[in-house]
Deep mutational scan, measured.
Amino acid sequence: KNAAQIVDEALNQGITLFVADNRLQYETSRDNIPEELLNEWKYYRQDLIDFLQQLD
């Protein structure tokens, strides 16, 4: 998997990933985040941060 796929997957589930103060953050109206997504975000944290910062 790559960062773009993970960001896309999150968006499809109503979750927006973004970077604030060099930390990976998310916004969602969901009550909870599936644990497998959280684990994936932790595992790919630096890739996601790098990818999202390139988009800014």
Rank of each mutant, 00 (worst) to 15 (best):
K1L: 04
K1A: 04
N2D: 09
N2T: 15
A3F: 03
A3T: 04
A3W: 04
A3P: 13
A3N: 02
A4N: 06
A4T: 05
Q5C: 08
Q5A: 08
Q5K: 08
I6R: 02
I6K: 01
V7Q: 03
V7W: 07
D8R: 15
D8M: 15
E9K: 05
A10D: 00
A10C: 04
L11M: 10
L11P: 01
L11D: 04
N12H: 13
N12I: 12
N12K: 15
Q13L: 15
Q13V: 08
Q13C: 09
Q13M: 15
Q13S: 08
G14R: 04
G14N: 06
G14M: 05
I15P: 00
I15K: 01
I15D: 02
T16G: 04
L17S: 02
L17M: 05
F18E: 03
F18D: 03
F18C: 13
F18K: 08
F18A: 05
V19H: 04
V19Q: 03
V19T: 05
V19F: 14
A20H: 13
D21M: 06
N22M: 08
R23Q: 15
R23F: 09
R23E: 15
L24V: 06
Q25P: 01
Q25F: 15
Q25H: 13
Y26W: 15
Y26A: 05
Y26E: 01
E27Y: 15
T28S: 09
T28E: 02
T28R: 03
T28H: 06
T28G: 06
T28K: 03
T28N: 04
S29H: 11
S29M: 12
R30H: 09
D31T: 13
D31A: 11
N32C: 11
I33H: 02
I33F: 04
P34D: 07
P34N: 06
P34R: 05
P34Q: 05
P34S: 09
P34V: 04
P34W: 03
E36Y: 13
E36A: 12
L37V: 06
L37S: 03
L37H: 02
L37C: 03
L38S: 05
L38A: 05
N39G: 07
N39E: 13
N39R: 11
N39Q: 12
N39C: 09
W41L: 10
W41D: 00
W41H: 03
W41Y: 05
W41A: 01
K42P: 02
K42F: 14
K42H: 14
K42S: 14
Y43S: 10
Y44F: 08
R45T: 13
Q46T: 08
Q46P: 04
Q46L: 10
D47S: 12
D47G: 07
D47N: 10
L48T: 00
D50M: 10
D50L: 11
F51C: 02
Q53P: 03
Q54T: 10
Q54W: 09
L55T: 11
L55K: 13
D56K: 12
D56G: 14
D56E: 13
D56L: 11
